[in-house]
Nucleic acid binder design. Sequence first.
DNA 1: TTGTAGGCGTTATCAT
DNA 2: ATGATAACGCCTACAA
Lengths: 333, 333
Amino acid sequence: MATIYEVSELAGVSLATVSRVINNKTKVSEKTAKKVHDAMAQLNYRPNSIAQSLASNRTNSIGLMVTGLNGAFFGQMMAGIESTLRKAGKHVIITTGHNEEAREKDGIEFLKSRNCDALIIHVEAVSNDYLIELCQGDIPVIVIGCYIDEIKQHCIELDNELGGYLAAKAVLEEGHRNIGYISGPENKLDAQQRLVGHQRALREYDCKLGAEYFYTGNYIDTGGRDGLKHFLDNKQSITALVCANDEMASGAMTYARDHDLELPKELSVVGFDNVIFARHIYPQLTTVDNPVYEMGMMAANMVLETVYQQQNLKIQHHFKPKLVKRNSVSTIN
Amino acid sequence: MATIYEVSELAGVSLATVSRVINNKTKVSEKTAKKVHDAMAQLNYRPNSIAQSLASNRTNSIGLMVTGLNGAFFGQMMAGIESTLRKAGKHVIITTGHNEEAREKDGIEFLKSRNCDALIIHVEAVSNDYLIELCQGDIPVIVIGCYIDEIKQHCIELDNELGGYLAAKAVLEEGHRNIGYISGPENKLDAQQRLVGHQRALREYDCKLGAEYFYTGNYIDTGGRDGLKHFLDNKQSITALVCANDEMASGAMTYARDHDLELPKELSVVGFDNVIFARHIYPQLTTVDNPVYEMGMMAANMVLETVYQQQNLKIQHHFKPKLVKRNSVSTIN
DNA sequence: TTGTAGGCGTTATCAT
DNA sequence: ATGATAACGCCTACAA
């Protein structure tokens, strides 16, 4: 592989000049620039990005940590991040945290050891204090999916309360009043917020959330199954079921059908997230769209702005979900 | 950040010695090693991986290109690759090809420009000749999901013919004889192979694949919908439908239900791939498991062996799919 | 076993 | 506008 030195020799200019035309920040006369370009073409020269990194203290790579690589949710997020970063010529180094504190911390260390210019992370197990300290370190960090006041300028978050409100309203508006709710794990902030929104909607319709209409799930399909089983076993006559995410909604629907409940006639179901497979299940799921792709793009834009001085990017820390009406909710008259 | 130089000073040894204990390839006396370790700890020293790369001509990063980041199929593959590479302390740089020739080539160039030690790619649009040339270049390449004789030692592939055979047999064994087949795009090798396997199974049961039982789909849900519509519109009285992947199976099932076909009683459906959502659709899909996670791990192992001289790894180029029986196939008596 | 010194391919700070 | 030249932080013969 040709080096900058050979190029300079062939072009009959100095090292520094070649470097200048590569980075075209400083002015170079058109004539010499052409000579250099010709030489580069002739030698099929490609700058060695590692050497560039060492000299410039910029790796042009961004570390990304997500819970897991499979799963529609993170897929969307990664897609948003990768596409905008790639357009800017930046590389994405990926790693996973698996929803375990030790592995999340380890992953972040792993990324830092690689001299990433910035980190974009979606953590679930690590403490707020840890995040605060991380954000105060020397490497820029964007945190997706949480809000912590001390580091709010690093956070990108969804209005989960609004989402919970919209989901509940989707069935309330259709006349449902006996509504089961399957929540996410109590220790997850988004689960708490979605629940708050749910309750607000119920209040608006003079409906109250008794404990008998509430079940705490786990954000995966078994939680939906167990939740619906719980309601059915206790002879709760619910006509609608609101689930704090699509996985649980899917699990509940499978259980419902196994117990000969006709969907959506005998049981309406609403999910949350609008992951890809929401349109693969039957009846197609009415759910709350979680704009993860956009949030991923925004995270990328934030690093582009703060780390690479890119201008004119509209930065937005808060995202609003919206309802996607499909066919899993029936009307009660 | 502390450098190797400061460590050497504090420990009272030379630069080279510090480097030796970092890479512990060469022998260092226990005493000096301890001095160095203490100094490193005291200074909270972390080697600069960029400088290491420049000097050693090793980046410890592997470039990964997939069609897209969302989608269950690639998620599984990436998970397999990342987990084994991460364990070995290697970094994964990710990019996408979007099933377009230009973008795939561009992505590969992008990865090469980053001095990856190796590439793992799953391409769909690029020509065989291009791949052959790529594999003969100076950077090691693993190609997942295709077989090309000239570069077979670079390839990891699934026995799609066997998979097609197993899928067909799943319904044949249950007594079905009027079987519609929705294939993948004609230009995809795996689609062709799955079809060959399908036909072999039919022959075994003295059943032939007339053109009226065949439809060419697109590997996404609309293909399944259109395929079933095609059969129904032409009054083909099929009792079973074999689809060349799960997405199409899902699309077909939705269409079936919209047209009041009871599943699986009136129509049995078989998919291919066993992606995550196959268990979210109802009835749960009988399908052919595509061991993408394992294939991803194997790709990672191959680079570990060929690039990083790791020993005792069992290398395997061919993978066999197996049938996963669930509830989407009924028995005909 | 340990130390010396040259080199990896750039960028960036000075001069000129 | 262009050219020397010193970093950047580490690896690795070669020597001792």
